[in-house]
Design a protein around this nucleic acid. Structure first.
Lengths: 131, 131, 131, 131
DNA sequence: GTGGTCTAGACCACG
DNA sequence: GTGGTCTAGACCACC
């Protein structure tokens, strides 16, 4: 699987996992009916506590992204793609707003911010094809 | 002083305070030799516990931004402006890189990201003059 | 762990703790990856308030000596030994310089100072093996 | 006068003043019957709060080093030199013991400590004639 | 008046 | 279980 966790990142591990799964659904990497790894298997591969994976899956169930299938495990729901795309959009927008707002509070000139952003987006986006 | 804290923000209050002071120094609102509000006064104005303010000030001392003047209070150091400007720059750049990177992982088309960013920066930056 | 605090010492307790941990790292008693006692456990053993221990640990994190491992506790970083050895060296040198300087200001004859120092170092260093 | 205070030093200013006066007495720079500067004059020259000087003088009186002389101000007592020499001796010894002890706790090899000390005492003591 | 230390205890997030 | 944040309040040293 394509999930990767960054222990250095301050965002909770379970959130990193949930988000990556949602984004995989949003971009079609995971489709309705696809199974996700079992809690134990995922925990083994990421070398983390199974409770952490369970928490991520629990949240995803609560949001209607995953559904338990008797004897099979958890599968992606039919409504998931639409929901995940919406969420991805909202998430990126929210982060952008927050960032721009903080830059304003820091009194960083808008022009500088724009320049820096374009510089970064150009250098990073084209840097490499994704894993 | 113009420090304002947002209890709704998930970042710790003491960090909000420290950051705002750093940014004030970075933009020249606070100059070397200027005194910051006393712990008690700042706490009173923000209606928070003095210990919380003290923690912010303590962190700023550890970073060499503030210097205690016995019995008088805390003053901005001579090296502070350079340090704060560097930090502000690094901070905004780091956040931008992180954001763009996550957008890439979420497989959001660069063009969409650019458009969204410009839209937000234009609407927010010009929205109002700062308090 | 072998940390011991002296309430009679005028240096803050949290500083005594932090220093002893640094010195333990410097001398190899604590190695990278080793966990330190939990805040609560350390506080219980020293019969002091957990917040005091937390403050020591917080400072050590700020200096890059300790690293939090989510939900597990704090571990010694890889860079810690070098840093701690450097700091121990600087610390002892600084204190020596300060002492000699003050002795000079007090117009104590260098020869007397030397004699006194050698006398003390010989009597104390060999006095007992360390705990 | 020859008193100088170092705001960077963590020892209280009033203590720096008192100590320097005691050491001046111990080394004969100030003799019984000599007057010290008035509180106001000393405070003016050091650019510090008069209360701080007053505190130093108060302590010196309590220790029998200074004595008020009607209309004259404070003068050095007859017993002062002996007392100050004893104190200087005790003070330097105490600091040495403390330093050596801490070096032992830091597990610094006695030989290294000795070498470092001799190095410093040789370089500093001969560096310059005193002001 | 100033900041600094320490205690006590509540609440939260994470694993 | 872990650490982190915040509050409340006492006590101290310094100026």
């Amino acid at each position: 699987m394509f999930v990767r966790v960054d222990p250095g990142d301050s965002t909770p591990i379970y959130e990193q996992i949930a988000r990556q799964i949602k984004f995989a659904v949003a971009s079609g990497g995971l489709r309705p009916g696809d199974r996700v790894l079992s809690v134990r298997e995922m925990a083994r591969r990421l070398a983390i506590n199974p409770n952490t994976v369970a928490r991520a899956y629990r949240d995803l169930q609560a949001e209607g992204i995953l559904l338990p299938q008797r004897g099979l495990g958890l599968v992606v729901t039919v409504g998931a793609p639409a929901r995940c795309r919406r969420e991805r959009e909202a998430w990126i927008r929210e982060r952008l707003v927050q960032l721009v707002n903080e830059a304003r509070l820091a009194r960083i000139p808008p022009h500088d911010l724009r320049k820096l952003f374009l510089e970064i987006v150009d250098s990073l986006q084209s840097e490499e094809s994704l894993p």
